[in-house]
Deep mutational scan, measured.
Amino acid sequence: FIDQHRAALIARVTNVEWLLDALYGKVLTDEQYQAVRAEPTNPSKMRKLFSFTPAWNWTCKDLLLQALRESQSYLVEDLER
């Protein structure tokens, strides 16, 4: 899901800070967390977050999807259609 809908997630996720907090310490290191937060816009934050995903396994991507479902369920539901 995460890889399949990358472009839509970059464009449409609005609550990136919540995602970062949910992933911090589980998937994201402090350095990665700070790097994403330093980006000026939500799309650039999501691009930076996605720059780390090639090194993630399915469990990490599932944690991101779970966080998306909790914070932006309407968006996930729309993309699952």
Rank of each mutant, 00 (worst) to 15 (best):
F1S: 08
F1W: 00
F1M: 04
D3C: 02
D3E: 08
Q4W: 02
Q4C: 08
Q4N: 13
Q4K: 13
H5Y: 10
H5A: 10
H5R: 03
H5F: 06
H5S: 04
H5T: 05
R6G: 07
R6H: 05
R6I: 08
R6L: 09
R6V: 08
R6A: 13
R6F: 06
A7T: 10
A7V: 11
A7D: 14
A7H: 12
A8S: 13
A8I: 11
A8D: 15
A8P: 00
L9G: 05
L9T: 01
I10D: 04
I10L: 06
I10E: 05
I10A: 04
R12C: 09
R12Q: 12
R12M: 05
R12K: 11
V13E: 06
V13C: 14
V13F: 07
V13Y: 04
V13R: 02
V13H: 01
T14V: 08
T14Y: 06
T14P: 02
T14W: 01
N15G: 05
N15I: 01
N15H: 10
N15Q: 10
N15A: 04
N15D: 12
N15T: 07
N15S: 07
V16D: 03
V16A: 03
V16E: 01
V16W: 06
V16M: 08
V16L: 07
V16C: 09
V16Y: 00
E17K: 07
E17T: 10
W18T: 14
W18N: 15
W18A: 15
W18V: 15
W18G: 15
W18C: 14
L19P: 03
L19A: 10
L19K: 01
L20H: 01
L20G: 01
L20Q: 01
L20R: 01
L20S: 06
L20C: 14
L20P: 06
L20D: 07
D21C: 07
D21I: 04
D21F: 02
D21N: 10
D21A: 07
D21R: 09
A22P: 00
A22F: 10
A22D: 10
A22C: 12
A22S: 13
A22Q: 14
L23H: 04
L23C: 08
L23W: 00
L23M: 08
L23R: 02
Y24C: 09
Y24E: 09
Y24W: 10
Y24Q: 11
G25S: 04
G25I: 06
G25Q: 08
K26C: 10
K26E: 09
K26Q: 11
K26P: 09
K26H: 08
K26W: 07
V27P: 06
V27M: 04
L28S: 02
D30M: 10
D30C: 06
D30T: 11
D30F: 08
D30Q: 11
E31G: 07
E31D: 12
E31L: 07
E31P: 03
E31H: 02
Q32D: 02
Q32M: 04
Q32A: 01
Q32T: 07
Q32N: 01
Y33P: 05
Y33Q: 06
Y33E: 06
Q34F: 08
Q34M: 09
A35S: 13
A35H: 04
A35K: 11
A35Y: 02
A35R: 07
A35P: 04
A35G: 07
V36P: 01
V36N: 02
V36S: 09
V36I: 12
V36T: 00
V36F: 06
V36A: 08
R37M: 15
R37Q: 14
R37S: 13
R37C: 11
R37L: 14
A38N: 10
A38T: 06
E39I: 01
E39Q: 10
E39V: 02
E39R: 04
E39H: 03
P40A: 11
P40C: 08
P40R: 12
P40D: 09
P40H: 12
P40T: 11
T41D: 15
T41V: 04
T41M: 04
T41W: 05
T41P: 02
N42F: 09
N42A: 12
N42G: 09
N42D: 11
N42M: 07
N42Y: 01
N42I: 15
N42T: 09
N42H: 05
P43F: 08
P43M: 12
P43K: 13
P43V: 13
P43H: 11
S44D: 15
S44A: 15
S44Y: 00
S44M: 14
S44L: 14
S44C: 10
K45F: 03
K45M: 09
K45T: 03
K45R: 10
K45Y: 00
M46T: 03
M46W: 04
M46E: 02
R47V: 12
R47L: 10
K48E: 00
K48D: 03
K48G: 01
L49Y: 02
L49H: 04
L49A: 01
L49E: 00
F50W: 04
F50D: 00
F50M: 15
F50G: 00
S51M: 10
S51H: 02
F52C: 00
F52I: 06
F52R: 02
F52N: 02
F52H: 05
T53C: 09
T53Q: 05
T53R: 07
T53D: 01
T53L: 14
P54Y: 12
P54S: 14
P54N: 11
P54H: 11
A55F: 09
A55T: 13
A55P: 09
A55E: 15
W56K: 04
W56M: 13
W56Q: 05
W56L: 06
W56N: 02
W56P: 02
N57G: 11
N57V: 08
N57K: 07
N57C: 10
W58K: 15
W58G: 15
T59L: 12
T59C: 12
C60S: 15
C60T: 14
C60Y: 10
C60H: 15
K61C: 09
K61S: 07
K61P: 02
K61D: 06
D62L: 08
D62H: 10
D62W: 05
D62S: 12
D62P: 03
D62I: 06
D62C: 10
L63A: 12
L63V: 11
L63M: 14
L63H: 08
L64S: 02
L64H: 04
L64Y: 03
L64T: 07
L64A: 09
L64V: 12
L64E: 00
L65Q: 02
L65V: 13
L65H: 12
L65R: 09
Q66T: 09
Q66R: 14
Q66F: 04
Q66L: 05
Q66M: 11
A67K: 08
A67Q: 04
A67I: 09
A67Y: 11
A67F: 09
L68G: 03
L68K: 13
R69A: 06
R69T: 06
R69N: 06
R69M: 07
R69Y: 05
R69L: 07
R69D: 01
E70W: 09
E70M: 07
E70T: 12
E70Y: 06
E70D: 12
E70N: 10
E70R: 09
E70P: 06
S71D: 07
S71G: 07
S71I: 02
S71E: 00
S71K: 06
S71M: 07
S71C: 08
S71H: 13
Q72E: 15
Q72G: 05
S73Y: 12
S73N: 14
S73L: 13
S73R: 14
S73Q: 14
S73V: 07
S73M: 10
S73I: 05
Y74Q: 15
Y74T: 15
Y74I: 13
Y74A: 15
Y74C: 15
Y74H: 14
L75E: 06
L75D: 02
L75F: 05
L75Q: 05
V76H: 00
V76L: 10
V76E: 02
V76Y: 06
V76K: 05
V76T: 06
V76C: 07
V76P: 05
E77Y: 07
E77K: 10
E77S: 10
E77H: 09
E77I: 07
E77T: 05
E77W: 08
D78P: 04
D78C: 12
D78E: 13
L79G: 01
L79M: 04
L79K: 01
L79D: 07
L79C: 06
L79N: 04
E80C: 09
E80N: 05
E80R: 07
E80W: 08
E80H: 14
E80K: 03
